[in-house]
């Protein structure tokens, strides 16, 4: 536990001392303002927006994952570019344990922020248990996102490109909301499709838990793959 906190404190030191990364720490604040203040104002003044509230709300919520997603990608890619990652490769620690410990707190913080946002928003009531599952999925997305990009990107330039690609992949399943229903399964290859669909089902009063569970297992599977690939590629 101490190791876990030490690692996180060190990463936060690095983040705090890099102005371009430090700036990203305000991102959840902006999302909270948008969802809790601006969106209600918008709906009040333009009632025609209301039918689009579910996709807006779920996408805004999942954008919470992008803060640590972006920041940690940058930290890890820079660490690899400057060969600091190699030092971890010769320390007496298990590589996989190290990766999991290092990403645990950003995952946890994202989970908690998501939970609070879904509790605090006043548009739709979300019961505690489904909220927890949504929040866990959002949290789990963070390490998958970070490790996936870090494995694929050889340097910061490539990292920026992959971040764009992943960012789009997180948002894109929302299209399923706007197209005929028979096409929606096509978006199932995107992990966030499942919590998005789960959210719509929840609002419709339909069965939604199975969709969330698929999302959870899908991300869990991706996490296992990403951790393994990362452990093989990051430390050499």
């Amino acid at each position: 536990m101490k190791k876990l906190i030490d690692l996180t404190l060190n990463d936060f030191k690095l983040i705090y001392r890099t102005p371009s990364l430090r700036a990203f720490l305000v991102m959840p604040g902006i999302i909270f303002i948008v969802v809790l203040v601006l969106l209600p104002m918008l709906v009040e003044n333009f009632p025609s927006v209301e039918p689009y509230l579910p996709p807006i709300l779920i996408v805004a919520t999942f954008e919470l994952t992008q803060m640590f997603g972006f920041i940690y990608c940058m930290v890890l890619i820079e660490e690899k570019e400057t060969a600091v990652a190699k030092i971890y490769g010769v320390l007496p620690v298990s590589k996989i344990g190290f990766v999991l410990a290092r990403l645990f707190i950003p995952t946890l913080i994202t989970t908690v922020l998501t939970f609070i946002l879904l509790e605090a928003q006043t548009f739709y009531p979300v019961a505690v248990v489904p909220n927890l599952v949504f929040s866990l999925i959002a949290g789990l997305l963070v390490p998958v996102y970070i490790l996936g990009i870090s494995v694929l990107a050889k340097n910061r330039m490539a990292g920026m490109v992959w971040i764009k690609v992943f960012n789009i992949a997180v948002v894109i399943p929302v299209i399923a909301f706007f197209i005929p229903q028979r096409f929606t399964p096509l978006f199932g290859i995107f992990p966030t499709h499942w919590p998005y669909q789960g959210f719509f089902s929840l609002l419709e009063g339909e069965a939604f838990l199975w969709q969330l569970i698929i999302g959870l297992f899908y991300l869990g599977g991706l996490l296992v793959i990403a951790v393994r690939k990362f452990a093989l590629s990051h430390f050499v």
Binding site: N10, K13, L14, T18, E79, I87, P92, V93, S94
Partner: peptide, 29 residues
């Protein structure tokens, strides 16, 4: 992993966290 407690590696090129002080780098590892 106990092997790594017995060996020390001096890498060919300098590799440090540039944003950390030298002492912070050493303390971390």
């Amino acid at each position: 992993k106990e092997y790594y407690a017995r060996i020390g590696v001096g890498f060919e090129l300098p590799n440090h966290y540039l944003k950390l002080t030298a002492r912070e780098n050493m303390a971390l590892f």
